[in-house]
Computed example of a mutant assay.
Amino acid sequence: MSHTAHIPSHRKPRRSASKLAVRAGVAGGVLSTLAMAGTASATPVEPVTETLEMPVLNLDLGSEVASAVTKAADNSGVAALEGELNAQEETARTGAAAEAKKAKEEAQKKADAEKKAKEEADRKAAAERASRNDARTSLGTKSSPDTSRPTAETGPVAPVAKGSAAAIVNFARAQVGKAYVLGGTGPSSYDCSGLVRAAYRQAGISLPRMSQDQSTAGRSVSLSALQPGDILYWGSKGSAYHVAVYVGGGKFVGAQNPRTGIVERSMSYDRPTGAVRVL
């Protein structure tokens, strides 16, 4: 056995802070009591009836740590909730933008389809009208009738074209069968106003180029009092969309469309809106 085995360790065990606080409070209370007792033995006084409360030190560090941990956990939960809400808002905005884009594309497709359908309907209507024109033309005579004699078809005797009017009518009829070309001014093809302008040039008269202006080139005349060489127009005066030359006998010569070209037609087939007389 070691010669120091019987000697106890000189190191004192460590005491906790809470125990030290309690012992300090007890020691303080004892010393205060002894001091008061000594004073009482020297001088007689009334017995002390007041109770002294000793302060208690709150050193419960565990509860403070737990509170701090709980607070930190709460803060983390709030941050996580805010992050989730932000993510949901972003998803909602993205979804709304996608829906708006899809709706716009669908609306555009619908508009395109409606436009295409309208164009197709217009094309079919034009084709049917042109077909009717061809059918009616085939029923009529290809040669120009003698308008100086009344017939069941021509009605009353029409005035015979003379002078400048004859030059205009003869030129217009000589162009029947030629092609219609938009913007054409001859000699192999014409559009409606190009044909009228070229016909009047034979009489030494210069007309405006466009049908709108040609419809206001002369004085207005009634459709029941037409003379050969008068200008017929369709649409409003000053904004006409088509013109032709009246050749007598209730007929006109005009450059109709690319399908039919330049033809001679009865006014009953496509009655004009009005007429003007330049001669």
Rank of each mutant, 00 (worst) to 15 (best):
A103F: 03
L85F: 06
S266I: 06
T141P: 06
S63K: 07
P208F: 07
K178Q: 05
A217E: 05
S164C: 02
A37S: 14
G204S: 06
E64M: 09
K12W: 02
S222Y: 13
W234L: 02
P44I: 04
A135E: 15
Q108C: 03
A92T: 12
P187F: 07
R271H: 14
A21P: 12
G77S: 15
A40E: 15
M36R: 10
G38W: 08
S206T: 15
E50W: 00
Y233T: 04
A68Y: 08
I168D: 09
G83N: 15
V169T: 11
L279K: 01
E84F: 07
V65G: 05
A98T: 14
S222N: 08
A100T: 07
R23Y: 03
S268A: 14
A121W: 03
S9E: 13
T147K: 03
E50M: 05
V157Q: 05
I168Y: 05
G183Q: 14
P47V: 13
L81G: 14
L182C: 09
L207C: 11
V160G: 00
A130I: 07
V253G: 08
A37P: 05
S206M: 08
A158L: 06
L52Y: 01
T70I: 07
A126I: 07
L20A: 06
V157R: 08
Q214S: 09
R209Y: 10
E64T: 11
V253K: 00
T273K: 07
D134N: 07
G186P: 01
G29V: 02
R149G: 04
G183C: 12
S144C: 00
R197L: 08
V22D: 04
R197I: 01
A240Y: 13
E89V: 12
F252K: 08
H10N: 08
P272H: 10
R136K: 11
S239I: 10
G186A: 09
H3K: 05
T141E: 13
L31Y: 00
A66L: 13
E64H: 13
V65N: 00
F171S: 04
N133F: 11
L207S: 05
A5W: 13
R23I: 01
G28L: 10
A24K: 02
G184I: 00
P8S: 04
K116Y: 02
G229Q: 07
A165E: 09
G62Q: 13
V56M: 01
R277F: 00
